[in-house]
Amino acid sequence: MLFTIINGLATGMAVFLVAAGLTLIFGILKILNFAHGAFFMIGAYVAFMIVGSNPPSLWLFLLASVAAGLVVGALGFITDRTVLRRLRDVDEAYMLIATFAVLLICEGAVKLIWGVNYASINPPPLLDDAIIVGSLFIPTYSAFLIGFGVLVYVALDLAIHRTWLGKLLQAISNDSWMTGLLGVNVPVALTLSVVASFMLAGLAGGILLPNQTLSPVLGGSYLLLAFIAVIIGGLGDIRGAFIASALLGVIESASSVLLPNIPGLATYVFVVVFLLVKPQGLFGSAST
């Protein structure tokens, strides 16, 4: 039972790592970024190019993840300049179709560059063990994921609620026109938050690399759960996304033990019930 919960928390943190960037960009730009999953996938491929199937050491693995974050962050800058920026004042439906187009381009590029073959990656040394506490068996990698997820959450929460830049972004999210009048360079701040969101996607791609088989369909698999976590958590709310991700992970994990034949059912039923009962998200109000 405890094992199921820990396993679920690890899954939940994996979802959160993807959802964090998604909710950040949603909170500020008010767009649902379909391409987020694709950039997460590109991050995974970049990290894979650096470390290969058997990461030689933990440090190289972490370094590769950071490098993936930087590369994807740079791609985010390009995407912002070429696409997102031109769409600031357009109806959100067109934002959706534009990010979907970016998703398609990314998937095509991944297929062209890395091929359609599957690759599986082992956890790096130190993370391929297990911690055994009494009868409890915890893979080190799960423990690492949980720790890393919490770390990212705390860092983001502090950055948004305690730093000058974070407060600035909150102001923009509230009323970008007024903030602009007050002398803040809104376009630069927006670009910055896009880059930050994409860096998070790339970093997540690197960190989650050992958890799955790498293939061009990777983007979609996490995207949907991350979307749901963002919605349930309340749009743009980092804390909500964190808790919702953990919840989703535990539910998914529990359902794979209790209903092994119908994967995913419990998760979606939960989402439906939750949205009907509490459509405004975990913490009440829809805005940050």
């Binding site: 696409v83 769409l87 179709i97 534009a98 187009a101 970016v102 398609l104 991944v110 062209l112 359609v116």
Partner: peptide, 20 residues
Amino acid sequence: IGLSEIVIGVVLLVIVLSAP
């Protein structure tokens, strides 16, 4: 393979950017 997604994506993007 792969190129088809890029072509569709670029066409979509161009249409959205030039004709919302």
